[in-house]
């Protein structure tokens, strides 16, 4: 099967590794243009018509999410986004596995009809290895309705979670802003930094600079204690590098238990105070 890998700086070697697993005839290109959705859509469309691949592979980055669905639609296809595995059968292309219902289920997705087909791979799902040749592609002509300004960061972060040895992180399970002190007490007992999943920061219960996940900070502390966090992939990518992961959640099927080393299934409003008491007792 012929595979076209579209490589950007982010996830580059993972995309190449996945492409090589998907097919033996791999061509890899980076697009030699400043990014806008329109510019990349037409550039990669031109490239696909030139290379004529059966499968086009991307990293599931914010950039890919911005233009690849539009590109696939030009070929009458749906992008199979955020795939975590591929299962090979007798015939090409493979069956792709992706998460649905916020990671509660996996789905086997079968492609129908002739190529080109489009898939993007989840960060961390393929091991980066080697660095095969990546060619640069410059399209013949480019027009873009979007005009992009240079990327920027908001005011410097007040909290650097990446330096913390222990992090206590809180999610939707905390239910109300008034309950935040419950986890604050645990953070204090452990000498830990307090962090949160996205919804908690969105709601303004904790400041944005305490957010862990794809749009927040990526941390790898010695201990990460996830309290009332179900474990959506956007959160997991920000913390699965922690040495020891502890999950406290009332739902035994929560995806967070998949990456945890230790877990307590139970009501956080009972478990967390018990933990605080235990830590004080044995100090």
């Amino acid at each position: 099967m012929s595979v076209l890998a579209i490589v950007e700086q982010r996830m580059a070697s993972e995309v190449l590794a996945a492409a090589q697993q998907f097919g033996s005839d791999v061509k890899a290109y980076s697009i030699d243009l400043p990014y806008t959705a329109d510019a990349y859509t037409s550039a990669v469309e031109e490239l696909i018509r030139k290379v004529n691949p059966t499968l086009v592979v991307f990293g599931h980055t914010y950039q890919t999410r911005d233009y690849a669905p539009r590109l696939a639609a030009r070929f009458g296809r749906t992008l199979i986004g955020d795939v975590i595995a591929a299962r090979f059968e007798k015939k090409d292309p493979p069956v792709f596995v992706r998460q649905m219902f916020q990671g509660k289920f996996n789905a086997d997705v079968r492609l129908v009809g002739d190529g080109p087909h489009f898939v993007s791979i989840q960060a961390g799902a393929w091991r980066a290895d080697g660095s095969p040749q990546v060619e640069k592609f410059s399209p013949a002509s480019v027009t873009s309705r979007q005009v992009a300004e240079p990327p920027f960061r908001e005011a410097a972060r007040a909290v650097d979670l990446t330096a913390a040895d222990i992090i206590v992180s809180v999610g939707r399970g905390i239910k109300e802003k008034e309950n935040i002190p419950v986890v604050e007490a645990l953070a204090q007992a452990l000498g830990a930094e307090l962090a949160a999943s996205r919804p908690i920061c969105d709601a303004g219960w904790l400041p944005m600079d305490r957010q862990v996940g794809s749009s927040g900070q990526t941390v790898s502390p010695k201990v990460y204690i996830a309290v009332g966090i179900s474990g959506a992939i956007q959160h997991l990518v920000g913390m699965k590098g922690a040495k020891t992961i502890v999950a406290i959640n009332k739902d035994p099927d929560a995806p967070i238990f998949e990456v945890a080393h230790y877990g307590i299934v139970g009501d956080l409003f009972e478990v967390v105070p018990a933990l605080v008491e235990e830590l004080k007792k044995t100090k």
Binding site: F105, A107, V109, E258
Partner: peptide, 13 residues
């Protein structure tokens, strides 16, 4: 139009 991809199976991870 007929879909270009179908969910063949949904299952707990």
């Amino acid at each position: 139009a007929p879909p270009s991809a179908v969910i063949e199976k949904l299952y707990a991870p």
